[in-house]
Design a protein around this nucleic acid. Structure first.
Lengths: 331, 331
DNA sequence: TTGTACGCGTTATCAC
DNA sequence: GTGATAACGCGTACAA
């Protein structure tokens, strides 16, 4: 409510001095500083972030943008927490939006964020050549992609070794005796789905198992598609004995589909999911999953972005984290 | 990047006219309007939301604040979606923050939101006499509380009939034969925990069952406390035969604790949770829960807030939604 | 060390 | 119907 002007008046100094007390305290005489701080306290002064952002040049506006496909997916929620914790620690606020895997919505929010003068944006691109993102990046706003990445791009990124994660999962399935392994993943235009499929294929190849095209299904990372696709797989004349489902929500869907058929996990069908879930242990049965360090991804991305703000011209950074297969009871 | 000035220059008019084309198109001659719109398109002009917010008075700034305890709780994530969908439909952006049930953090974010000149704020207060919230409300920023509410307050609110929900759950437990029923809820300073406890007590009373103080445990709505407290309850000399756990995460924790003791749900211990979970069907066993219409809560709150912005002096609104007991297999 | 004055991109109030 | 111009609250050259 009170502004610089009010504080200046109360302290008997100019607004420039008050401003300096906030931004460059070392350039103000100690006793003046004291008087100003006293006035600020008395008036309950809070700098107006909007006015400040209007004036400030990039990197000091204390606002980050975060666009994720769906906050209801625990994986993205965990990333969001990682981002927010770093932001909070640095007095940054976060503007969070859900794109719903919808290019138009993403584009709208990207515009909003530019119009809001955010210092930078963190997001998993909707597909691997997301034009809207590329354009925004070229306009000079620092971007860090997380989870998924852009092809042929020099944008900062934090990703997880999805190929390796998938490879480990499928290799484990094979080790415990399975040879007919179904895969539920995403369209290949999403880098994560593509890489997880690659890991699946490589694990089969490494064990001299031929790929059965019919065992591969393409979903949309949502629970419902997990139900449908798992059911399709199970309805095959010669169904798989194990399923590798390349995302958390679809894995839950698969559990439901399997149960609905009266089948037992892992006796009748083994199952490994991806991304992990906070309640994986309470599922029926406790679900073996490839865990991504999602919090870490968010944290690292925010730190990368903050670093980039201080160093606009440093070479682009690329972080790759390792996933981990968490053995529980579903295979 | 381009501003009103650029557009004005390109269109050969003054900035005032350009501004009018955006805000009051009816006050501009059709042909001038055309020229201006053409220039805007050519320059890819996007209004600067920051500058706009600096000038605009309340209600037209197109920014909402949302502060929730924890985005990783699916219940709050669902509320957030409800809020965001309404916001998006009205071209509002949402600034989302996590308070972690921490008064200091909440207070910080409240300040940030005021400093960001949000049009209004939606939040579940951390406790029922949350001073920081009251103060912000008195300063004139429209607030809508959701889920939890403030005592003795005239602030707009959307709540759920928690007493009724708890009553239904416990009554059902009694109906299927239980008389020793444990309760895990929150501190009474949170209205939801208090009301759910009340419903529990009323259901017992209605069936002439005395309250056993030892059967009532106070948690913090997080998974870990569900594990600990359920374990304590089960370790009692005469343990309860059924548990009513007044929140989703603690219910998941309770499942884990029960399993860890090698007990079967519902044969050895029956269980009903609260809030619901998208994965309730995939849990072991599918968990009976009192479902809150969380998306609806968020939607209604955002709509209430938007309405309030247009009508600052209308009497305060108070919405109460009904929860529903969803029977699955845990009791 | 401190103060004056301008500009950030808008909106709104005047005149014309 | 349109154009100057004064705010909004702040940061920062530049002057003192």
């Amino acid at each position: 409510m009170s502004s610089l002007t009010d504080v200046a008046k109360a302290a008997g100094v100019s607004i420039a001095t008050v401003s300096r007390v906030i931004s460059h305290p070392d350039k103000v005489a100690p006793h003046t500083q004291l008087a100003v701080r006293k006035a600020m306290k008395e008036l309950g002064y809070q700098p107006n972030r909007v006015a400040r952002r209007l004036r400030q040049r990039g990197g000091k506006r204390h606002l980050l943008g975060l666009i994720i496909p769906d906050i209801q997916n625990p994986f993205f929620a965990e990333i969001a927490r990682g981002v927010e914790d770093v932001a909070y620690a640095n007095q940054f606020a976060v503007m969070l939006c859900n794109s719903d895997e919808n290019l138009e919505k993403e584009s709208f929010y990207l515009d909003v964020m530019r119009a809001e003068s955010v210092d930078g944006i963190i997001l998993p691109p909707i597909n691997d050549r997301d034009l809207a993102v590329t354009k925004i990046a070229e306009s000079g706003i620092p971007i860090v992609t997380v989870d998924r990445s852009l092809s042929n791009s020099t944008i900062d990124k934090v990703e997880v070794d999805n190929r390796q994660g998938a490879f480990d999962a499928v290799a484990h399935l094979i080790k415990v005796g399975h040879r007919r392994i179904g895969l539920i993943t995403s369209r290949v235009t999403i880098s994560t789905g593509r890489d997880r499929k690659l890991g699946y294929e490589q694990a089969l190849a490494a064990n001299d198992i031929a790929v059965t095209p019919d065992y591969i299904r393409i979903g949309d990372y949502k629970q419902a598609s997990g139900v449908t696709l798992a059911d399709e797989l199970l309805a095959l004349p010669v169904p798989p004995t194990a399923l590798f489902v390349a995302n958390n929500l679809m894995a839950v869907g698969a559990i439901e589909a399997i149960h609905k058929r009266g089948l037992n996990i892992p006796r009748d069908v083994a199952l490994i999911g991806f991304d992990d879930l906070p309640w994986a242990d309470a599922l029926d049965p406790p679900l073996t999953m490839v865990r991504q360090p999602a919090y870490e991804v968010g944290r690292a991305a925010a730190e990368l972005l903050l670093k980039r703000l201080g160093n606009p011209n440093s070479p682009s950074a690329w972080l790759r984290l390792r996933p981990r297969l968490i053995l529980r009871k579903s295979c």
